[in-house]
């Protein structure tokens, strides 16, 4: 006998339930958590290296970093903080809530002010999986081309902050900043869009925003 069983439930229900548990843990520990999403090579790890360097002694930052393979990013970041957990996803193209849940068991959340989850380099897959973060940050770079915001609407629509990195390369690559900004604003009228250059150590708007979210003074982050 064959029957049809009506369901009508969110496919990502299990992930979302674990994400909710993560968020409760983050709230209980008073740690502000961001999910950093960007393409491979956009400069996610380089941004974190500089950010950790500039925020040293001001706030305590931990990192969960996801990559398909190797612990290279984890090793890079461990030069700036001892609170780093590397997650290897194998064939997985994003982090899910359960992977983050396992990772944070290795971190002293109560001793942190900010936790950054550096997602696997990818502009599509990570966007659909809630990790329990408080803010989703989309990182683009000028070397990727000025059409990437329009081509990846899900990330732009759901991001709380958008960063445009490598603006030091603007004289050398074709990138129409007003067009990029217009594409972003069509999709998301609320999220701040910040232009930064990790290579020139110019990430002030980003660190100021982060300090504000963590409830810290906003004047002493840069070096």
């Amino acid at each position: 006998m064959s029957i049809t069983v009506p369901v009508v439930e969110n496919v990502l229900k299990v992930n979302d339930e674990i994400a909710l548990l993560n968020r409760r843990n983050f709230n209980d520990a008073h740690v502000f958590v961001i999910d950093l999403i960007g393409a491979p090579g956009a400069g996610k790890t380089a941004l974190l290296e500089l950010m950790l360097d500039q925020l040293a002694g001001i706030v305590r930052v931990g990192v969960v970093v996801g990559d398909p393979a190797t612990s290279r990013d984890g090793q890079r970041l461990a030069r700036f903080t001892r609170h780093v957990v590397q997650v290897n996803t194998g064939h997985g193209c994003h982090l899910d809530a359960n992977q983050v849940r396992q990772a944070i068991t290795k971190l002293p959340l109560a001793e942190l002010d900010i936790l950054v989850i550096e997602n696997v380099g990818n502009l599509i897959c990570p966007v659909g999986f809630d990790l329990g973060q408080h803010a989703k940050v989309g990182l683009f770079s000028v070397s990727e081309g000025d059409d990437k915001a329009a081509k990846h609407p899900h990330l732009v629509l759901t991001a709380n902050v958008l960063l445009l990195n490598k603006i030091d390369l603007l004289p050398y690559v074709p990138f129409d900043v007003p067009r990029f900004r217009e594409d972003v604003r069509h999709l998301n009228q609320v999220a701040p869009l910040m232009e930064v250059s990790v290579a020139r150590r110019q990430i002030d708007p980003w660190t100021q925003w982060l300090l504000a979210q963590a409830g810290r003074p906003q004047s002493s982050a840069t070096s």
């Binding site: 006998m1 064959s2 049809t4 069983v5 439930e9």
Partner: peptide
């Protein structure tokens, strides 16, 4: 992003 329904075959005794 929804699972709407599933079609299943029940074993004879369950059916």
């Amino acid at each position: 992003f929804l699972l709407l329904s599933i079609d299943v075959v029940l074993p004879p005794d369950n059916a």
